[in-house]
Design a protein around this nucleic acid. Structure first.
Lengths: 246, 246
DNA sequence: CATTCATATCTTGCATACAAGATTGATTGA
DNA sequence: TCAATCAATCTTGTATGCAAGATATGAATG
């Protein structure tokens, strides 16, 4: 017996952990039995996620994780760069400085990232590398933008999963460390620069996808609801994927 | 008989038109009879709006438009400045230029703003002055951020309504014209500067509110769910308010 | 007269029932 | 053998019923 918010949170975390792939079907009855509640609660969670763009509904067919195409991926990466560098820029302009508690929270997060990488815990590593950006936004003091950023992060994760961008987890981790180090030394502008570079390398890969995969346009064109994979042939719980994080 | 999305859209537009005030109660049965549908559809719309932060739910009491406090208003204005200037900055960096059709759309929007101001159509004027920012974001090519920006605009409108910031509609309109003019002349950086100034004057007023109204903190502290106005004494349809737009 | 308590009414939270549409799979025909 | 059709099954969309909690009203009491 669960409330709707816990269901949507679980789904979001599953995506960030790359345990749910784009195109995955989210059956109402399946989720209802899994969470031991009625379909009403599940639908409430689905409507919540749909409002945030994290699931899409195909009428009378069901709820699916979106297949993020290249155009949307460009928007998503642009949006993330604008928000994340903008937060750091505003922080720098205010000449604020992170208090010890907040800095400690970021250090702990970095330590968890490192531990997940070294223990080769792929799911947790994927989750933490994505969650870091949200955590940073929260630490910079804007809960509203942090909330919006979480949704964007979920969608970019869906994109990188499908396109198997060869992500280097350790490199991402080190770039995260660079951002926090810059903030710790009171140089928020440098942190902004680090973040811009960090996101920029990933954003650049979006453009490469289009050139690298000439079938991209055709594939996207053919991914209309009718061409979605059949229901029973697609298990709800996907096998674990790896890499592809920021 | 209406679908959920039309209900949520109508509510959003009513807020942008300042026909619904912060703290307004949205009764399920009331809306169901008004839209000639069952409570199920209404609840779907409410969950949608709640996911976007536009309504808050008080358990077993009902759905309310939020009373945006000063802290959240600061976050909202920061977020809007980051997103809106960021979009213009990215546009400038790409050295893109608006095509004729897009520019025409913005010009039409400006003309409608002017007409609403001159005919003293307060509701439409309020709506258009807020909607312009969303329209601009769409024209700059990022639908994802435009969607998020719409939700933020609704919330800032709620804030300005409560705090009765003395908005000068004509000044806002002229600043909108300046932004579009700069874009039309291919100077997106200038447009970013105009927008930053446009938003900055409003954001500065948020800080003034705190100093101007020493009861602000107390008022916010006492606005817990229990202290919300009683149900029957608060009609669902509010009288029209005026001014307070960006 | 003010305060407290109990009851009646109203509203939301949740589950369930039923209708409508979609998919699957078997059957029929060429 | 392949294509088309039709029936059976499954899934979502919507309405409704009932329980639980909250508010308001009025009586009773100090």
């Amino acid at each position: 017996m669960a409330v709707a918010s816990s269901i949507s949170t679980r789904i979001i975390n599953a995506v960030l952990s790359q345990k749910l792939k784009p195109g995955a079907r989210l059956g109402e009855q399946e989720l209802a039995t899994l969470f031991q509640c009625s379909r009403t609660i599940v639908r409430e969670a689905m409507v919540d996620l749909a409002a945030r763009g994290i699931v899409i509904v195909s009428p009378r067919r069901g709820w699916y994780l979106p297949e993020v195409n290249v155009e949307m991926a460009r928007e998503l990466y642009d949006a993330r760069e604008i928000i994340e560098t903008g937060l750091l820029r505003a922080f720098a302009r205010r000449k604020e400085t992170l208090d010890a508690g907040t800095l400690a929270r970021l250090r702990v997060h970095l330590a968890e990232q490192k531990a997940a990488i070294e223990s080769e815990d792929v799911e947790r590593r994927s989750y933490l590398l994505g969650d870091f950006h949200v955590c940073l936004a929260q630490c910079l003091g804007n809960q509203v933008l942090a909330s919006k950023l979480r949704d964007l992060t979920v969608l970019t994760t869906l994109f990188t999963m499908r396109h198997q961008t060869p992500g280097d987890a350790r490199l991402s981790y080190e770039e995260h460390v660079a951002v926090v180090d810059a903030l710790a030394s009171g140089n928020a502008s440098a942190a902004e620069h680090c973040m811009c570079q960090h996101l920029g390398t990933w954003e650049a890969k979006v453009h490469l996808v289009r050139e690298h995969d000439p079938l991209e346009k055709l594939r996207q064109a053919l991914t209309s609801p009718k061409d979605l994979p059949a229901r029973v042939s697609r298990p709800a719980v996907e096998a674990k994927a790896d890499e592809g994080n920021i």
